[in-house]
């Protein structure tokens, strides 16, 4: 079985993994980081988005073995010292979540969007969230939150 070494939320991890183990399962089942959710089988929903080397990736469509040598950030790694990340704060302020199930993927994707395009507009947010489904909010508050979060991240 492949042995992989990676960093998850800044913590070094070495693990022997079954080849068929998905990155999402490594995080959830082996590392207990259950904030990363799995909502579909076909890469549409985006609840499983994490950052791999700073880029948003669907962790249910990546083998754990492929993550060897990478730096992973999950939703659990976003808040620092008990203080919510500005994007998390913006989601809360704007009521951009209801059941919360899509939220981790939605927030991780939004942080990546705002990092890549600090001055993004609503159209860019909509396009950027193309691979993240939410069934509760109707998206309007998510879009508002991403705009606000991006602004806060700019400082």
């Amino acid at each position: 079985m492949p042995v992989i070494s990676l960093s998850v939320n800044g913590i070094p991890v070495t693990a022997e993994v079954e080849p068929r183990l998905l990155l999402s399962s490594l995080l959830r089942d082996h590392l207990g980081l259950t904030g990363t959710h799995v909502g579909c089988d076909t890469s549409q929903c985006g609840a499983c988005v994490v950052h791999v080397d700073g880029k948003p990736v669907k962790s249910c469509a990546m083998l754990a073995a492929q993550a060897d040598g990478t730096q992973i950030t999950t939703i659990e790694g976003l808040a620092q010292k008990g203080k919510l990340h500005p994007m998390q704060e913006a989601f809360r302020d704007n009521h951009a979540l209801q059941c919360g199930f899509c939220t981790p993927g939605m927030v991780m994707m939004s942080v990546a969007l705002a990092t890549e395009q600090p001055d993004l507009d609503e159209a860019a947010v909509c396009k950027g969230l193309e691979g993240n489904l939410c069934r509760c909010t109707g998206y309007q508050n998510i879009i508002k939150a991403v705009m606000a979060g991006a602004k806060a991240m700019r400082g």
């Binding site: 890469s43 985006g46 988005v49 791999v52 880029k55 948003p56 990736v57 669907k58 469509a61 990546m62 994707m109 990546a112 969007l113 950027g128 193309e130 691979g131 993240n132």
Partner: peptide, 9 residues
Amino acid sequence: IGDPAVRNR
């Protein structure tokens, strides 16, 4: 193609 996450892989 796909979405941003898919495009990163």
